[in-house]
């Protein structure tokens, strides 16, 4: 009963995210203004920024594949690391040219596609590292808009997203459902590889 409920909720969240993803998003480097205050602006920013949203989903899927323990760890550590990175980013003045989102896509998508069995000692630091890096980028962007309070919205959205998505994957029992997750991971990795191509476009010709 519980498992079915988790699967339905997970499927619903996936569907809603899919629709949100297809909505015309107002840019990546720019801020989403919901008109409902900075906390909601932060939530909107996360949900409408594929560079952040896709790695979060991918991390949740991967942690879900590794079991409930990894999922719980990510559920708490990712938002905290993201907040910490965001606070650092708010106080930095950087012009970053490293394709960090593309590398996140590639790493997480590759891990999912390969169903790589990383030990917990590596999953934890990886989660923290991804949270910190994406948090710093968010902080740099949010500095010119809603600032720190938006990070709270992002944290909340991260907690809910990771909890639901990880639990959804943990609840999957049939072997083919796990294969579907791995195929999705390969798509994420492939998109990351293509993004790296866009970053370095024409530089070797």
């Amino acid at each position: 009963m519980k498992r079915g409920c988790i699967q339905r909720t997970g499927a619903l969240v996936l569907g809603v995210l899919g629709v949100i993803f297809l909505l015309p998003a107002a840019a990546f480097a720019h801020l989403v203004t919901t008109g409902m205050g900075p906390v909601y602006d932060g939530i909107g920013h996360l949900l409408l920024t594929p560079e952040d949203l896709v790695p979060v989903i991918a991390l949740s899927l991967y942690c879900g594949m590794r079991g409930a323990r990894a999922g719980r760890y990510a559920m708490f550590m990712l938002p905290l690391a993201w907040l910490l990175g965001g606070l650092v980013g708010l106080n930095l003045d950087l012009d970053v040219t490293i394709p960090v989102p593309a590398l996140s896509f590639l790493l997480l998508g590759g891990l999912i596609a390969a169903d790589a069995n990383l030990p917990d000692q590596l999953i934890g630091p990886m989660t923290v590292m991804i949270g910190l890096l994406h948090g710093v980028f968010n902080g740099l962007v949010l500095k010119s808009g809603p600032g720190g309070p938006a990070l709270l919205g992002i944290m909340g959205a991260l907690f809910v997203l990771v909890a639901l998505m990880s639990a959804f994957v943990v609840s999957l029992e049939r072997p083919w459902t796990r294969i579907v997750v791995r195929v999705m991971g390969s798509w994420v990795a492939a998109s990351g590889m293509l993004m790296i191509g866009w970053y370095f476009r024409g530089q070797l010709s």
């Binding site: 596609a113 791995r182 390969s186 798509w187 293509l194 191509g197 476009r201 010709s205």
Partner: peptide, 23 residues
């Protein structure tokens, strides 16, 4: 059944990346 459809997009993006980099 599922390895081939994973391999194709992955390698396809390698080709696209080469195209983008001018290789």
């Amino acid at each position: 059944l599922w390895v081939l459809p994973i391999a194709f997009p992955m390698m396809m993006t390698v080709g696209a990346m080469m195209g983008l980099m001018g290789i």
